[in-house]
Nucleic acid binder design. Structure first.
Length: 187
DNA sequence: GCGTCGATGGCA
DNA sequence: GCCATCGACGCG
């Protein structure tokens, strides 16, 4: 089956629906004529300013600016002094929904450990230089996978214990059959 | 196989 | 001071 590039229309779903919908899709980074490719197996949804776990809950700042923009763009930020995190803006413009890509399975015989958001971004060579780029372009983009039928599982998000009543929200999604999912498979 | 902890820098 | 993390280390 021919895989088509995901469109703006697809990215305009709510953060929750996009996070679910991205499981099984293929992430591609075209770099120096080589395509790095991985099958996404784990995501988390962040639901805008009211979501206390989302960076957008602190309002619109230089860092969070792209999250408030149109869907289908990369939001990449730096954390813990050494990791980049790759997110995809979702929903309607101004809604500031986003999906964190947490894990993937490497394709094409690529041997890389993509089990965790820090490791994934590093292996895919995604950095803050990619912040704000349009994911319907030819550099960094996603492909559909028509025959891929992941077994969807849900838990609370990782590392958001500070987020008060949002900390236990069931917004982490993963393919229950994938060995590449990062640590916890239940609450 | 667990829990704990240090690295390391941008951000509000 | 706090982090949407990771890997090294100590335990027994």
């Amino acid at each position: 089956m021919l895989s088509r590039k995901l469109t703006m229309r697809f990215y305009r779903q709510s953060g929750t629906d996009l996070a679910k919908g991205l499981i099984g899709k293929v992430l591609v980074h075209r770099i120096e004529g080589i395509d790095l490719r991985g099958r996404i197996v784990e995501t988390e949804a962040y639901l805008g300013p009211e979501d206390l776990a989302s960076h957008s809950s602190r309002g619109r700042t230089k860092r969070t600016e792209v999250m408030f923009g149109p869907a289908g763009h990369a939001y990449v930020y730096f954390i813990y002094g050494m990791y980049e995190m790759f997110n995809i803006v979702a929903g309607r413009t101004g809604q500031a929904h986003a999906v964190l890509i947490r894990a993937a399975e490497p394709l094409d015989g690529w041997t890389a450990d993509l089990s965790g958001p820090g490791k994934l971004a590093r292996a895919f060579r995604i950095t803050r230089a990619d912040n704000g780029i349009d994911l319907t372009g030819d550099k960094l983009f996603l492909l559909g996978a028509p025959n891929d039928r992941p077994e969807l599982a849900v838990t609370k998000r990782v590392g958001v214990e500070y987020a008060r009543h949002w900390k236990d929200a069931p917004l982490r999604f993963f393919d229950a059959r994938s060995p590449a999912v990062s640590k916890p498979r239940s609450l």
